[in-house]
Each structure stands twice: as C-alpha cells, then as structure tokens.
Design a binder for these strands. Sequence first.
DNA 1: TTGAAAGCGCTAACAA
DNA 2: TTGTTAGCGCTTTCAA
Lengths: 335, 335
Amino acid sequence: MKPTIYDIARLAGVSTATVSKVFNNRGSISDKTKKKIFEISEELNYQPSVVASALAGKKTYTIGLLIPDVVNPFFAEMTRNIEDRAHELGFNLVICNTDNDVNKEFNYIQLLRQKRVDGIILATGVRNDKLLKELINEQLPIALIAREMSILSASTVLVDDFAGGYSAASYLTGLGHKRIAIIAENLKLASSRERIRGYRYALEEAGIGYDERYVKESDFSLAGGGKTTNELLDEPEPPTAIFACNDLLAIGAMQAAKQRGVSIPEELSVVGFDNTVLAAITDPPLTTIAQPIQAMGQQVVDLITQEINNPKSIKQRIVLLPELIVRGSAREPAE
Amino acid sequence: MKPTIYDIARLAGVSTATVSKVFNNRGSISDKTKKKIFEISEELNYQPSVVASALAGKKTYTIGLLIPDVVNPFFAEMTRNIEDRAHELGFNLVICNTDNDVNKEFNYIQLLRQKRVDGIILATGVRNDKLLKELINEQLPIALIAREMSILSASTVLVDDFAGGYSAASYLTGLGHKRIAIIAENLKLASSRERIRGYRYALEEAGIGYDERYVKESDFSLAGGGKTTNELLDEPEPPTAIFACNDLLAIGAMQAAKQRGVSIPEELSVVGFDNTVLAAITDPPLTTIAQPIQAMGQQVVDLITQEINNPKSIKQRIVLLPELIVRGSAREPAE
DNA sequence: TTGAAAGCGCTAACAA
DNA sequence: TTGTTAGCGCTTTCAA
C-alpha cells in the first residue's frame, strides 16, 4: 500500500499533526524532527494525498480550462501559456474541448464542480447565463480570456479588438488600398463587432466610405474563408485587400485567391489576426495582428489564483494591446 | 455552503448510505426514495464530491497526459483525440507540457501521483527509468503513445514507423528519384531509427545504394529543417528529394529551398510525416505520411481505462499502420 | 429496502 | 515544540 501520513508519523516517532506541519511549513518544528521526517518520507517515497488534503479543507490545486478546440493553433498557444503559468504557481490544468457546444460546456462545468477544481478559466462562449450566475454565487472563481461577458462580473483578460481592427485596416489604407474587405468570424461575438468597428473607423479616417458589400461573415474554417473570398472576388468591384479576423480565415482567403490565379500580395493583400504559428508557414508569410497571447495567459492565471487565494479580492478587467506584425501578404495595390 | 450527502439524506428522510447507493446505482432502492432523492438533489443543485468519493476508495476519474508541447500541431491533435475519448468514458485530462525536459517530467509525475490520478499517458520520452519502474510497481496504470520503452512493460500504441519510412521512400523511388535524403528528428528515438530503416529498405529495394551523406539529424524545428536542407543542397550532388521525419521539418525544408530559388516540387520533392493541419496549409500542400492519430488517441485511452478498471488486465502493444497522403510537394525528378 | 458506523488520509484548533 | 482529536464528504460492510 501507498504510505500515509500515519506511516511516516509512526516511523518518525511523532504525531501526524507534526508530519502535516512539516509538509505544509507551518507551526514551528525542530530541525531535528524535520530532518527525520523528510528522511523517512524519502525512503518510503511518500506522496502526500492532495485528495485527502482537499477534503480536509484545502485546495485541489487544479484549474479547469474550457476552450473550443486545442487543435486550433490560437487556443493551443493559449493553453500552453496558461498551463505554464499555472504550473509555476503550483496548479494543474484540466483541459476541456467544448467545440462551442452549449451542452458540452454545461457537462464539463458540472464535472469540474464535482471535482472541486479551485477555479475555471473560460475561453469559450458559455451562453448559459443561469449556470454562470450559479457559479458566481457559489463563489467558484471564474476568469475569462479573450471573451466578453457583460452580465458577468468576473475577472477578464482581453485584447483591444477595436485597436486591432483599426491597426489592420489603417495599415491597408496607408498602403493605398481603397477597396478593403473584412471577413469576420461571428458577428454575434463582441470581439468581431469591435474589430469591425476599428476597421470602419480606420476607413473613415482615411476618407473611404464604409461599404456593406465588403463586410462579410464566415464560419470559422479554412473553407469558410475561401468561400467568402470567392464571393468577394466575384463582385463587380472586387476588393484589393482583405482583412480576415483570424489567421485561419486569412489563409483560406489566400488559398482561394491563388486557386483562381489571383496572386498575393501583388493582386490581393491579405491581413490576418492572431499571429498563430500558421502565419509564419504560409507563402507568402502572413501579415497579421498579434494578440499578446503569452501575457494574456499569464494574466488570467494570475487573476484567477488571486481570487482563489483571496475570495474577496477585486475582480479586474485587463485589456492588452495587439500589435501589427508585418510579413509578406500585404503591399501597395497594383495600379 | 455547498450541500453534502448529509443534507440530501436529512431532507429526504433517509440515511447517507441510501443516497450514496442511489447516486452510484448500487443496492436496491425503491423507486419512490430514488425519486425523492433526485428531486431534492436537483433542488439544492447537489454536486457529489469526487474528492470525498476518491478518498473513500473510489477513482478520481482523472488521467494525466504528458506531452512535449501542445503548440506542436501533432501533439495538439493527439491531445484532442485523447481528451475526447477520455471524456466519453467519464475521465478528465490533466495536461502537462514537458518540453522533453527530464526535470519537468519528474516534477509533473510527482504532482500527478499526489493528485492520485487514475493513470498516466506518456507521449513524452521519460528517460528516468527508476521513476517509471516505481510507477509500475505502485500499480499506477501507465500507457505510452507514439513512444517505445523497451524496459517498460506498459500498454503501448504506436504507428508502424518502419512502414511509414518505407512508404515515403518507396513513393519517391517510384517517382524516379535516385538521390533521396532523409532528415530525422532525433536518432536516439526508436521511431526515428525505424523510419530510417524503412527508408533504407525502400532504397535498397529500388536498387539505390544507401548513402550516409543523405541521412541527417536535425533538431525539431522549422529552423532545424531549413538548416539541414541547406546543408543537403550545398552538397556537390544534392538530393532531388527529401523525406523529412515530421511535417515541421518538411516545411522548414520547403522554406529553405524556396529561399534559395529551388522550386518545389519542380526541382525538389519533399515528403513529410504526421499529416498535421500544417500540411494542408503550405504551398504547395505537403505530401506526407499520416499517423492515424484519432485511432491512436482512442486506443490509448481504451487501454489505460481498461487497466484502471482491472489492474491485472493484460498489457497490450498496438501497432497501427500509417498512410501516404499524396498532395503537391513531390513529383518526378526534373531530368 | 434501508441504516449505523467505521474508515479513507489529511488539517487545524486546542492542549500540553 | 509536539500531540490529541474532531472533522472534511463519501463508501461499504453488516445488520436490521
């Protein structure tokens, strides 16, 4: 059998309380007993049970992470950065792929509650307001990353989507483009709407009218980006530049354009969003807006652990600035 | 406070034993009490504590997953498939990014033990034999995916690397290539050696001598693939085809070749391995060897849960066949 | 069909 | 500086 605190106590000739104190670094224990306890623990390869410890009122030291899909490079990077920071602070991460499916989200959240995770990080759009309010009432620390949730008073880390949309579009107007299209992922998302607002602001600033024909919604996939691009290029006055609201859409756009013989960036400029690993791999490499994903990951973890350690700590909303990464997929328009 | 089994029992006018039985579907309880218990649980939103349940001798229903890095698309897909299957079977996944670092591996494994996970899936090359033996002795179910570990008697799921190497190389010989190079990730890995062996076998079968100058080791990165490719192309008799042992290396190879004006596939054919999402994104799209990653993920989870549910179940070693996916990065040699 | 009670491994008063 | 002891929330055996 696995050794328990009792075994250690017995062999060291002390009480379990003493052993517990040694491992938790509380109370004052003589160096001599400490040493003895460590020696014996070492020898038996004692692994204190966080299950028992959690039941006795301490934390489980695990955090749940709900994301749509780790295969999506943006979320993979998010997961990595969150996990890194969590690990630094002594927490493990339980990963949950929801595919943005309401039922899965609900199911995972229930499971995480039963596991008594110390907190939940949401990168997925949980639309079940009732559930969420329950969680908050239950005092289960919740933090949001790259997601808005107005009804919810929860700590949040986001990127300034307006600024992102603005810098993408103004980069394109700066290059001299007049017909600039935007492909957004899901117009219901606050982030999409903000990016569009930034785009619009940039166009107006450049004295270019906002033209609804150039604003498209697409499902979140390569194929979706391609399809929408074809629609755009079929217009009588096709755009000379496309700003896609994420890298995958941008790549779909590039592929579709190439397929019909439209060369990039010569005949069509493309700008993406997210700066995932994919952006460095395409040909030409993708000019895109980088989300400071590492900082974001670190921040959510810091916010949520703060709340875990002090339930009445103030909830914060942190907005980080995105950054334009110029690579090769955009340049001045042809004529 | 969160409702406990006592609250439910009291309100339902029964004992905690009865409530426990109802939730675990054991013993025989009258429909009437069952109904009552469910109603009350519903009302209080009772979430049975798996922490307490685990302490009382049941499972934690969580599995640890050690991978080098989720950002690597191959491991992201692996993680996704494993998580999906685990979730289907009622298990959660704790994700651990080790960067193939021995210390991190050790550290994570200790943490997972303390958390009393029901099992650990290893996709990373834990080189600490002593640790591993301890785990086995401790009866902690371990399963390996895409990794060999001869000393270890643990359930294993792998792809037939020899067959993979063979089919990549024989595809290239079939196209008429005579000077075919191979870039492997880490010659210490059994998988690399097997792929090389398959490659060699195909060459010999085609009557082409095995030439050591064409066998290169590279670190696992885009840059590594690029650097190695440059070395290869600098040879007096440069290869007309490169088989890279993973997609990332293959893409690095393509990028390096393009950069020096060598066009793909006209002047240089490239074949990858893994068939990650990246393969569909490059230009030209990458011809590569697909690992049946979904089946592999499912199988490891099935193997490990089998062992979790029945500690003396027989350990298995499952070998799946890879498949050549022809896209656009390889064709007949020029002259 | 139901319940009493011991125990899982640990923590935290409180006492000594 | 160390120990006693009562839980934490659940499961399970045995009895009723």
